[in-house]
């Protein structure tokens, strides 16, 4: 893995690593990805992907707004202004 590629991934993931951590993670990733390549020789031609191990039925709820019973409990986990969650600048 090129250092440029690792930097790109870290930026997307919003992760900041020290030089030593970067060196270690790069080594680990290279070893693991090389192992992932054992799938290369499996013949998957014409095979459907299995997003789930069981057949998941399409039983979606009606798209209707519902009042959650404990809004106060949600807001307790955040910094709030009136009933808004305060976040960083965009």
């Amino acid at each position: 893995m090129e250092e440029k590629e690792l930097s790109r991934l870290l930026k997307i993931c919003r992760l900041e690593l020290s030089e030593k951590e970067q060196k270690d993670i790069k080594k680990d990733i290279e070893e693991v990805v090389a192992y992932f390549d054992i799938l290369e020789n499996v013949d998957t031609k014409g095979t459907e992907v299995a997003y789930h191990p069981i057949n998941v039925s399409e039983k979606l709820r009606e798209d209707k707004a519902e009042q959650f019973g404990n809004v106060e409990g949600i807001l307790k986990n955040t910094k709030t202004y009136r009933f808004y969650v305060v976040g960083p600048k965009v």
Partner: peptide, 14 residues
């Protein structure tokens, strides 16, 4: 090469 392949391998293993 990785993600879609893995989902197909799961399908075959299933």
């Amino acid at each position: 090469r990785y993600y879609s392949k893995a989902l197909k391998v799961r399908s075959l293993l299933l």
